[in-house]
Write a protein that binds this DNA or RNA. Structure first.
Length: 491
RNA sequence: GGUCAGGUGGCCGAGCGGCUAGGCAGAGCUCUGCAAAAGCUCCUACAGCGGUUCAAAUCCGCUCCUGACCUCCA
């Protein structure tokens, strides 16, 4: 198929731009992944689900995407300013295990959650500890270019010197003077020369377990260098898309640009994309705020703010109903609305297979098909896409009810539209229920429904209603239609 | 304090100069033995105050409110 013309909101320019890959149809996309020292919370998941949508659409639109998402398993410190404890070491001490056991546990947990949300795996999922050499090499090159210096075993990036020839605050739209205002004065004992300088390599204290030899002694990499090193290694010195949460703009991505620029002497990224935050009662969900939801809590409903559990696909649908650059507020009501909406959409997808065709169509499917593409081409506007798909749902249900007609040709296009967008692009899927995967339940239910239909045929409605009410008490709902009676487990 | 986003109907959320999405909830009707599902119809909002315009939820100004970033966090 021909490539779709997509517009992407670029954080660099703060406006939508035509997406023109450096080397079409190939696209390189790097997304900052999780730091695996604890369970991912729902806010993290939102970002990865957003980029899953973006990845899926780019692939659907005909691009050959190399999608790289890192696993941060080293180098992050508690607290600020290159001091404090290593997060992994802290957690390991707490759980009395090796730091790498922490890494393993939460990496596997993260992948499980991503699988439940039906996200596609990245093409490459590199780890920080697997790329220590690359990070050391990059640090050496930055020192060689004169933009970093070693001080007592720690290597710092010289932000003020970098700023003489580059715009350090390019991505965050801040001036150096403004940034300097927000920092403290350096004390006499500081190793750093400048207040904004940040560490590329950090000297390990004696008790530090995760450490590697380097030209500057035994230590570990700084906070930001892993992404620069790994994106350069797998996508080149300049690549198409770099993504992450909006909270990474000011520090992490700003420093990433500076490092890559200092090392490779070119702008590392053409399009910077940032997803907005998930909020709870208007406040950002975060680990430090203690208002984080774990995916499993949401699925099971085992959380004090939840009335019930919600399935992974309902949650995915909930997130897709909001544009990735808007904040999304989390509430029982909103989740319940999404659950119902998702169900309606999936019911229509099933009904689609049963539709009978006519000579002529009473509505035109081609515009609907085109509008779905327009929605996604406009900076991946999934809420608009869903609105169009619900127009399609109405057509499907009306045709099924006999108030509309559809031709063979239009039905084929409608099916293709739904399959492409619901499954391939939005990444939604039918959720398993007892009604389609449990043979015993099926056999029992068939018998019960047969008895009920016999009662109905004899107009013995007290018996048929007794069966229906009894089933309802065990969370089984049944529906009578012209084609027969169906059943399903209530959510 | 600095920087930047927002404030849309009962709720969630698109739109961002004229055609006034969509989902959920609510009301009525059709279908049905009754339900459920589905269909049809109704409910029509853009924080406030000014201004620009033939025309503003959409542009400009002011006011109020909320949030984010500036410190680890997607």
């Amino acid at each position: 198929m021909t490539l779709q013309q997509i517009e992407i909101f670029n954080t660099l320019t703060r406006k939508k731009e035509k997406f023109v890959p450096i080397n079409p149809p190939f696209v390189g996309m790097y997304v900052c992944g999780p730091t695996v020292y604890s369970d991912v919370h729902l806010g993290n998941c939102r970002t990865f689900i957003s980029f899953d949508l973006i990845y899926r659409y780019l692939v659907h639109a005909g691009y050959k995407v190399r999608y790289v998402r890192n696993i941060t398993d080293a180098g992050h410190l508690e607290g600020d300013r290159d001091e404090g404890e290593d997060k992994f070491a802290k957690k390991a001490k707490l759980e009395q295990v090796e730091p790498m056991e922490i890494v393993q546990k939460y990496t596997l947990g993260f992948r499980d959650v991503m699988r439940m949300f039906n996200t596609l795996s990245p093409s490459i999922e590199p780890t920080a500890t697997g790329h220590i050499l690359e990070q050391i090499e990059m640090t050496k090159q930055i020192i060689a270019s004169g933009l970093a210096y070693e001080s007592n075993g720690t290597v710092y990036f010289d932000v003020e010197k970098y700023s003489q020839k580059n715009n350090y605050g390019l991505l965050s739209n801040r001036k150096l003077e403004e940034l300097l205002e927000g920092t403290r004065e350096l004390g006499g004992q500081d190793e750093k020369k400048g207040r904004l300088d940040f560490a590329l390599w950090i000297k390990a204290k004696p008790e530090h377990i995760m450490r590697w030899p380097s030209p500057w002694g035994s230590g570990f990499p700084g906070w930001h260098i892993e992404c620069s090193a790994m994106s350069t290694k797998y996508l080149g010195t300049t690549f198409d898309i770099h993504g992450g949460g909006m909270d990474l703009i000011a520090t992490h991505h700003t420093n990433e640009i500076a490092q890559s620029q200092a090392c490779n002497h070119c702008e590392p990224v053409k399009y910077w994309m940032h997803t907005n935050m998930l909020t709870v009662n208007g406040v950002r969900m975060s680990k430090s705020a203690g208002n984080g939801f774990l995916p499993m809590e949401l699925f099971t409903g085992n959380h004090k703010l939840l009335e019930k559990g919600y399935s992974p696909m309902s949650v995915r649908f909930f997130m897709l109903q909001t544009h990735y650059r808007s904040t999304l507020d989390f509430s029982n009501e909103a989740l319940q609305a999404s659950e119902k909406g998702f169900e309606r959409l999936m019911n229509a997808v099933n009904t689609l297979e049963k539709l009978k065709t006519s000579e002529k169509s009473s509505s035109d499917i081609k515009p609907l098909h085109a509008k779905c593409y327009s929605a996604m081409n406009d900076d991946f506007n999934s809420p608009i896409l869903l609105a169009h798909l619900f127009d399609g749902v109405k057509i499907i249900n009306s045709t099924h009810a006999g108030t509309e007609t559809i031709s063979k040709e239009d039905l084929d296009l409608l099916k293709k539209t739904f399959h492409d967008f619901v499954f391939d692009v939005l990444g939604l899927k039918e959720e398993e229920s007892a009604s389609n995967n449990d043979e015993l339940a099926n056999n029992l239910m068939n018998l019960i429904l047969e008895i009920r239909n016999e009662a109905k045929a004899k107009k013995d409605f007290s018996t048929s209603d007794k069966i229906r009410d009894g089933l309802a008490k065990t969370k089984i709902s049944i529906k009578d239609s012209k084609e027969g009676t169906t059943w399903e487990l209530q959510k």
